[in-house]
Design a protein around this nucleic acid. Structure first.
Length: 369
DNA sequence: CATACGTGGAC
DNA sequence: TGTCCAAGTAT
């Protein structure tokens, strides 16, 4: 897009936007300094996640891993535990891997060249955000806020769920970004989207760039941006079991290293709808070499909604009567831990519900009486 | 290009 | 209760 074809006065638009940002920006933890590492962590946490949710996680994460090297040297399980409850856990694993890469290959300095795009978990938005915010480089950082704001100002009706549309907005930002204050410009666009130019009921009367907005002029700001709806989520019937051995230890299992909730821990968890618990018994013997005795009664029902599916979990309790095959157990993803130590492992929220519902209840009494 | 990938809050 | 959303990325 060429500047001559833009219908707005770029210099005045920049000035109006930057002035508003200077006077109205929120005081956020990651805005108090310009450490590329801290900016990076904040951007990963903020992906698809609200600012209010991120703040306490960011503070704790920075206490645990104050520097890039500290994070690089940490155990992955510790990192996942710090991420517990934030969701999209591949963000944590990719960040950890990328930070290790930066320590090893870039002398612990976050790259400020095209190399940054090679880092795991750093896509087009995050790369632009780090380059502009941490290094003052005029690179576009186009997220959902930016697309919403610009689709309204420039009356663009492209479907923002498409990659091609994001690229179109990046080209547009290349034209209108402030060369002097790229960090403030990008953040101002996002801040405007978060505080004024909101998805529903935007506060146009308070908008610093209202005079530049074509959608407002047409009165169709609430119809933008155009975004195709997602398909309905699917339900899965699951069974989980809280098993205790004679010493009072609890059995937990680690999920596979790819896919949903990768590498997180949970109570033994299988797919299945029937009230017949023989499938759990068979699973425990086949996977862990354990002979178990399940109480044939659903102790708790957990409904957990993910972004793309729903788990409806019937939760059972039971005892481990015998270790049939020690080697199978050792080679499995399962292990016995003290009841009090379950908290040390990163659990997804779905199974935290089981922890709260059963493990912290009078489980010994339920099982043995 | 479409889909998988979490969670909690707003309306 | 249902729907949509929030500073996206990997495959």
């Amino acid at each position: 897009m060429e500047k001559e074809k833009l219908d707005i006065n770029i210099a005045k638009f920049q000035g109006d936007l930057l002035k508003w940002y200077g006077e109205n920006k929120r005081d956020l933890p990651w805005r108090r300094e310009r450490d590329p590492y801290r900016i990076w962590v904040s951007e990963i946490m903020l992906q698809q996640t609200k600012v209010d949710t991120v703040i306490p996680y960011f503070e704790r994460f920075m206490s645990l891993f104050p520097t890039l090297d500290a994070l690089a040297d940490a155990e992955e399980e510790t990192v996942l535990k710090a991420w517990e409850g934030l969701g999209y856990y591949s963000r944590a694993r990719n960040l950890h891997q990328a930070v290790k890469e930066v320590k090893e290959s870039y002398n612990s300095k976050v790259p400020h060249t095209e190399e940054i795009h090679k880092l795991k978990g750093v896509g087009p938005y995050t790369a632009g955000a780090i380059l502009s915010i941490a290094y003052g480089i005029p690179a576009p950082a186009v997220d959902g806020n930016v697309m919403r704001v610009l689709s309204r100002i420039f009356l663009m009706k492209d479907d923002i769920s498409k990659v091609s549309t994001r690229k179109k907005f990046e080209a547009l930002v290349e034209e209108i970004i402030s060369q002097e204050q790229p960090s403030d410009f990008n953040q101002a666009l996002m801040e405007l989207g978060a505080l004024i130019c909101t998805p529903r009921s935007p506060s146009c009367l308070l908008c610093p760039v209202q005079a530049h907005c074509e959608a407002r002029e047409e009165g169709i700001q609430e119809q933008l941006p155009v975004k195709i709806k997602k398909t309905a989520v699917k339900e899965k019937n699951m069974k989980a079991v809280v098993l205790m051995d004679k010493a009072g230890k609890v059995l937990i299992e680690q999920r596979p290293d790819t896919g949903l909730l990768a590498k997180l821990w949970q109570f033994p968890n299988i797919e299945g709808a029937s009230k017949d618990i023989s499938d759990i018994t068979n699973y425990m013997e086949a996977e862990a070499g354990l002979k178990v005795n399940i109480v044939p009664e659903v102790k708790q029902h957990v409904k957990h909604v993910f972004s793309h599916l729903i788990w409806k979990i019937d939760v059972y309790i039971g005892t481990v009567d015998e270790i049939v095959n020690e080697n199978t157990l050792k080679g499995s993803s399962m292990q016995f831990v003290e009841k009090e130590d379950v908290d040390w492992y990163p659990f997804p929220v779905s199974h935290q519900k089981i922890m709260d519902g059963i493990l912290k209840g009078d489980i010994e009494n339920w099982i043995y009486n």
